[in-house]
Amino acid sequence: MSRRIYWLLPDVASARRTVNDLLVARVPVQHIHCFGREGINLSGLHPANVFQTTDVIYAAELGLLIGGVIGVVAGVLVAMYYPLGFASLQWGVVAILGVLGALFGAWSSSLIGISVPSHRLKRFEAAIERGEILLMVDVSSLQVKEIENLLQASHPEARLEGEDPDTPVFP
């Protein structure tokens, strides 16, 4: 199980030192994500990507669910009111429209979700606008305390902002 730890750092130099300490502690660079306001130079750091900074995953999941339900309902209505002659073919339409509805719902919702800032990062907006750097570290549940203690001891300028227990596994 993976957890995401959030830290706020005052500037890019502090973020670079912190990331270097995390790398020495054997946290893979793919699990370290830095996010700052637009226009800030994050060179040398692993920047957060669209999966960490927008609601694209949440929107796609919601669209998949809603689109699938609407597709199944439409399939049931078609099967009940427009008989095709074969009973197996009629109910196959339910499955086909359910899958097509789910795919269309996920696609269309993700197009919207990619333009919406992440609801998980909403609480950091003011700090990021002030020029602070948000550091997101994905570690196993067993490493959380170790990493928190390491950063608190070596970076007093950093502020621990909590952890997110349900970090998506893939991004």
Score class of each variant (00 low, 15 high):
S2N: 14
S2E: 14
I5P: 03
I5F: 07
Y6E: 12
Y6A: 11
W7V: 00
L9G: 04
L9T: 05
L9W: 11
P10W: 11
D11S: 13
D11M: 07
V12W: 12
A15M: 06
R16Q: 12
N20R: 14
A25N: 05
R26F: 11
P28K: 09
V29L: 14
V29F: 09
Q30I: 09
Q30M: 10
H31S: 08
I32Y: 10
I32W: 11
I32G: 04
I32A: 05
C34M: 06
C34A: 14
F35S: 02
G36N: 07
E38W: 09
E38P: 02
G39T: 07
G39I: 09
L42Q: 05
S43E: 15
S43G: 11
G44C: 03
L45I: 04
L45C: 07
P47C: 11
N49Q: 14
N49S: 14
N49C: 07
N49Y: 09
F51T: 08
F51D: 13
V56L: 10
V56D: 05
V56A: 07
I57V: 13
I57H: 13
A59E: 05
A59Q: 07
L62F: 15
L65N: 08
G67R: 09
G68Y: 09
I70E: 02
I70G: 01
V72W: 04
V72C: 04
V72Y: 03
V73T: 05
V73R: 01
V78Q: 09
A79H: 01
M80E: 01
M80K: 06
Y82D: 02
L84P: 00
L84N: 03
G85Q: 02
F86N: 05
A87M: 03
L89K: 04
L89D: 08
Q90C: 00
Q90R: 06
V93K: 04
V94C: 02
A95D: 06
I96T: 10
L97M: 09
V99N: 05
L100V: 12
L103W: 15
L103F: 15
F104W: 13
S109K: 03
S109C: 08
S110I: 02
L111Y: 13
L111G: 08
I112T: 10
I112L: 15
I114V: 15
S118R: 07
S118I: 04
S118H: 04
S118P: 03
H119W: 08
L121P: 02
K122W: 11
A126P: 02
A127L: 08
G131C: 07
G131V: 06
G131I: 06
I133C: 00
L134A: 02
L135N: 03
M136K: 09
V137S: 04
D138G: 00
S140Q: 05
S140C: 01
S141R: 13
S141T: 12
L142E: 14
Q143K: 13
Q143F: 06
K145I: 08
E146T: 09
E146K: 13
I147A: 01
N149W: 08
N149Y: 08
L151D: 01
L151R: 04
L151A: 00
Q152M: 10
A153H: 10
S154T: 11
H155F: 03
H155G: 00
P156Q: 09
P156C: 01
L160Y: 15
L160A: 02
E163Q: 12
D164G: 00
P165Y: 10
D166M: 13
T167V: 11
T167P: 04
T167L: 10
V169I: 14
F170G: 05
P171L: 14
P171A: 15
